[in-house]
């Protein structure tokens, strides 16, 4: 009986190992290549900072416009919806259970620190990120990247840096915009439902729940989301030679990996908050 159990266990282990080992190895390889790509991008940013600025700066502005300014309406809509659904409901619920004093803490802990940066990052990923992978992957498949190299133009400098910088700035700005709109709409909704606090009291309570550490950590976290999304997108679009048929698969992989990477970064910041 013991022997049968042992045999079963070994074969089970082998079966599970055979199934998951290749996926694990592939994940590690992707991680290694992504790290190398990140280092190359950082190296280019360091050595070529400010170079060819008359070409690169307008590209950064274009990226901010594409991944930030053009997303203001959709983020505004989300902000209004979150304000009603989350902030307004929270205020009402806390009043009902007699815990109004904790409203600010709850909003800061759940919304400002977690939901707002993630929402802004995911909107950028969904609306601009996927299109960018297709754009870069198609450019790679059609040989446009080689055409850039033939002209002596570094593709990392011309294609990757503006996108990473643009996405980083956009996610930071969109997060702030989302926070302000959500809090404003949430207050208006709660006020319409009979909240007695003035806007000054409400925003004062939220601001009072923030610590000085929130500002640098939130800036790093939202900037980190933008940079990660930009890097993963550019890696999948450019790092290896794609055929046109592979561009769709690369897009799906990019979305999954961006979400996982952002959640992992989020977990790191949760740890930092706990330690602090």
């Amino acid at each position: 009986m013991e022997s049968i159990t042992t045999t079963f266990s070994r074969s089970e282990v082998r079966r599970v190992g055979n199934r998951f080992a290749p996926a694990l190895i592939e994940a590690l390889e992707t991680l290694t290549r992504l790290a190398a790509f990140t280092l190359i991008t950082l190296g280019t940013a360091w050595t070529r900072f400010g170079q060819n600025s008359r070409v690169i700066r307008p590209r950064i502005v274009d990226e901010i416009h594409r991944s930030g300014v053009r997303l203001l309406p959709i983020v505004g809509f989300l902000g209004a919806a979150l304000g009603v659904v989350f902030v307004g409901q929270t205020i009402a619920l806390m009043q009902q259970v007699g815990a109004s004093g904790f409203t600010g803490t709850l909003i800061v802990t759940v919304f400002i620190r977690e939901l707002a940066p993630l929402t802004a990052g995911l909107v950028v990923l969904a609306r601009v990120g996927t299109a960018t992978v297709i754009e870069l992957g198609t450019a790679r498949a059609l040989g446009e990247v080689e055409a850039l190299e033939a002209l002596g133009i570094d593709p990392i400098h011309y294609l990757v840096l503006p996108r990473v910088v643009g996405f980083t700035i956009s996610v930071i700005c969109l997060t702030v915009y989302l926070m302000l709109l959500t809090l404003g709409c949430g207050y208006l909704f709660a006020f319409a439902r009979g909240l007695k606090a003035t806007p000054g009291e409400f925003f004062g309570e939220v601001a009072g729940a923030l610590s000085w550490l929130d500002f640098p950590l939130l800036a790093m976290k939202t900037g980190g989301f933008g940079a990660i999304i930009g890097l993963v997108i550019c890696y999948h679009g450019l790092a290896r030679s794609l055929t046109l048929e592979e561009v769709g698969q690369a897009t799906t992989r990019t979305v999954a990996q961006c979400v996982v990477a952002c959640l992992l970064l989020d977990a790191v910041f949760i740890l930092l908050y706990l330690i602090a």
Partner: peptide
């Protein structure tokens, strides 16, 4: 200079002038 086969691998997001001017602007800032 390298002129590729077919349609020359032009950059579709740039117009004709921007395509031609890109290397000149990039290298001369």
């Amino acid at each position: 200079g390298l002129v590729f086969d077919g349609n020359g691998r032009l950059f579709p997001s740039l117009n004709v002038f921007e395509n031609i001017a890109l290397p000149w602007c990039y290298h001369r800032n």
